Amino acid sequence: MCHALSAEELARLAAIMARQRIEAGTTFIEEGAPADELFNLTGGTVKVFKLLADGRCQVTGFMMAGDFLGLSRGGTYAYSATAITPVTFCRFQRTQLRGLVDELPKIERQMLGLAMNELMAAQDQMVLLGRKTARERIASFLLALSARAVRRGQPANPVGLPMTRGDIADYLGLTTETVSRSLTQLKGEGLISLKGNHAATILDTGALAAIAGIEDGDGPSGFDHIT
């Protein structure tokens, strides 16, 4: 959110924020709680999820450094957020940030862009869950993580997988066993290599893209949007 601001504007933003570090497993946004704060992640990985009526968990995204959490259409949070790894973030009081937005149009434009990303993420998730096979979902997921890293100036490989297989399953609408089996199959075909449970290296991007149904020049986008 800060990259388009001047030094003076950044100083004003810094004056209303608090820096915080939390440990893995800490839930810092509760679905249905008053949406009094917003969070700009500066390090670590967070899973965003909703609890269904039957108690199941639907992971709707994995957020990383640079992502913004806490945007809400109403007065309560629409989802919960839990740190997968140790996480650092800048925390803003909604009322203070709203006051600054009124004075600094650049921040308002950035917030609008984040809201648009939410809509795009929801659309991508619908396609991922509604039209793709398990194998296609796994391929899309790995490519999206890799593409996201590149867009943020990081290496395309290895692809970090700090989340559990269960978290991936809840995000992709699969079972944990299907996620593990699909990754093992892709490894057996020489398309990826696995380093434990928390990293994968894409060995054949073209073949993986073909499985995912991504044409040349396209890029999997769903993972790069705020949820």
Rank of each mutant, 00 (worst) to 15 (best):
G130D: 12
E136V: 06
K106Y: 01
R109M: 07
R73C: 07
M126L: 14
P220A: 13
D67R: 00
D218L: 11
E136Q: 15
G222H: 03
T76P: 05
P105Y: 09
I226A: 06
A15S: 15
L71N: 02
P220G: 07
A18Q: 08
A33T: 14
A210P: 01
A15E: 12
A212M: 11
S72Y: 05
A207Y: 10
A210H: 07
L172P: 02
G196E: 04
K195R: 12
M63V: 00
Q58K: 12
F141R: 04
G55D: 12
E215F: 12
D170R: 15
N197P: 00
T178P: 01
T82G: 09
I138C: 08
E118W: 09
Q96L: 15
P86C: 02
I168Q: 11
T27M: 11
A15M: 06
A212T: 08
R165K: 05
T184K: 15
A156P: 02
T205S: 12
A15R: 13
A199I: 10
T184M: 14
F28I: 05
G32M: 07
G99R: 13
Q154F: 04
I211Y: 08
Q154E: 13
P162L: 10
G130P: 07
L112M: 10
A35T: 11
M63K: 02
E9N: 09
I22P: 06
K132F: 07
G66K: 02
D216T: 14
D218Q: 13
S6N: 11
S72W: 06
T42R: 13
G130S: 14
G43M: 03
E23M: 11
Q96V: 12
A11H: 14
G166N: 13
A212G: 09
Q154L: 15
V59P: 01
